[in-house]
């Protein structure tokens, strides 16, 4: 597979998945979008790494999504959040996503001067994920959504970082952090359920 050819489409792909994470009210849709997001991340990492190493990001992301999903199966109500009215809340989030997209597009040339080894599509995707992840964090107080926001921000960072640091140990430890965050999110659900508070 020629990953360079599909990279521009992957920018749109991660943008859509991050947008779904922002607006979705169904945990199943969100977990699926999180898993799909890691396909995009895999493509961007595979641009600079051998595919057999890049696939670690994909597998880690999918396992994280699965861990979070399993935690939510028994506590779907934990997903409920104050998203506002259906139309107004969704429109607001679309507007924010558009704004972040615009900022990511505008900032790409400046960031490219810092991160010399990254291509424009990688920078744009990284900025898009970091921006939407941060907005996600700012718009929610629900534990699992916060974990998803953090995972999104870290994913964006990992795209940049893969172009800078090729050490397998660092990236293995980043994978440990990703899995640790997912386990923590799952623990939050379990801890709350145990006492029913």
């Amino acid at each position: 597979m020629n990953v360079t050819a599909v990279a521009p489409f992957a920018v749109v792909w991660v943008g859509i998945t991050a947008l779904i994470l922002l607006v979705s009210r169904d945990w199943r849709v969100s977990i699926t979008a999180l898993g799909a997001q890691y396909v995009g991340i895999f493509i961007f990492v595979a641009l600079v790494w051998p595919v057999e190493y890049a696939v670690v990001k994909l597998i880690t992301g999918w396992i994280s999504a699965a861990i979070l999903g399993m935690g939510l199966v028994d506590s779907a109500e934990a997903w409920e959040d104050q998203l506002g009215g259906w139309v107004s809340g969704t429109l607001f989030r679309f507007f924010i996503a558009g704004f972040v997209g615009f900022v990511a597009f505008a900032l790409t040339p400046s960031v490219a001067r810092w991160v010399l080894r990254a291509s424009e599509v990688q920078i744009m995707a990284g900025l898009l994920l970091i921006g939407l992840g941060l907005f996600h964090l700012g718009l929610t107080a629900q534990p699992v959504r916060i974990i998803i926001g953090l995972l999104t921000v870290l994913s964006g960072f990992e795209i940049f970082y893969a172009t800078m640091e090729t050490s397998l140990l660092v990236n293995a430890m980043l994978a440990v952090v990703t899995l640790g965050l997912a386990l923590t999110g799952s623990y939050f659900n379990a801890a709350g359920l145990e006492g029913g508070t």
């Binding site: 964090l137 107080a141 534990p143 916060i146 926001g149 953090l150 921000v153 870290l154 952090v177 965050l181 923590t184 939050f188 379990a190 801890a191 709350g192 145990e194 006492g195 508070t197």
Partner: peptide
């Protein structure tokens, strides 16, 4: 275990990450 996660812990985790 048995208590819901509180907002201080969430803020702590977010900032540290």
């Amino acid at each position: 275990i048995g208590k819901s996660v509180n907002r201080g812990v969430l803020r702590f985790l977010t900032y540290q990450t």
